[in-house]
């Protein structure tokens, strides 16, 4: 993957495959410490401890769950290449939480990429799933919650191309305001 936003797009697909209806995406940039924290938390089916152990193994790819494969191992490799790490917590019936640390000062640290494109693609393709996206830069925060957007839209489809375009610009603007997502 070329950047973190593409990893995110891939990881959230796992949540959607796991029948999640609400997904929290959080990116916390702490430039002083040279840290970027990336978190994805869902309320999907979750994994048992046995699956959880195997999920980082690229050769564990059961077609019955379809929740594993190269996605998580590559994300882990991207984080670890910077001296960071990936932690996964999961409970059957409750959901899964991934928390990755990237060391932003490391030469191998991927750029964040076009986060607005990832969010736009996710919302467009999964209009029935709610996504909360929180981005922090030096303590300043941008938040997008599809439940709030849906409430304003009423009967208008959130996946309407005009709405998706607006969401994309809204996110880019919001990130620029907090100087994040560069």
């Amino acid at each position: 993957m070329e950047d973190i936003s593409l990893h995110l797009l891939d990881l959230v697909q796992n949540s959607i495959t796991a029948k999640a209806t609400l997904i929290h995406i959080s990116i916390r940039e702490i430039p002083d410490k040279g840290q970027i924290w990336v978190e994805v938390q869902d309320n999907g089916t979750g994994m048992n401890s046995c699956q959880l152990q195997q999920v980082s193994d690229p050769f564990y790819t059961t077609r019955t769950t379809r929740r594993v494969g190269l996605g998580i191992p590559m994300f882990q490799a991207s984080a670890e290449a910077t001296g960071g790490s990936l932690h996964i917590e999961s409970e059957p019936g409750k959901g899964t939480a991934l928390r990755a640390l990237f060391i932003s000062s490391h030469i191998d640290c991927l750029p964040l990429g076009r986060l607005e494109d990832t969010l736009a693609a996710l919302i467009f393709l999964n209009p029935d799933v709610d996504i909360v996206y929180v981005h922090e830069y030096c303590g300043r925060q941008f938040l997008m919650d599809t439940r709030q957007i849906r409430e304003i839209l009423g009967e208008v489809d959130i996946a309407d191309p005009t709405v998706i375009q607006w969401i994309k610009e809204y996110i880019r603007n919001g990130l620029n305001e907090i100087n994040g997502g560069a």
Partner: peptide, 8 residues
């Protein structure tokens, strides 16, 4: 977004 809603 309200305006977009109306237009849509």
């Amino acid at each position: 977004l309200e305006e977009i809603k109306q237009r849509t």
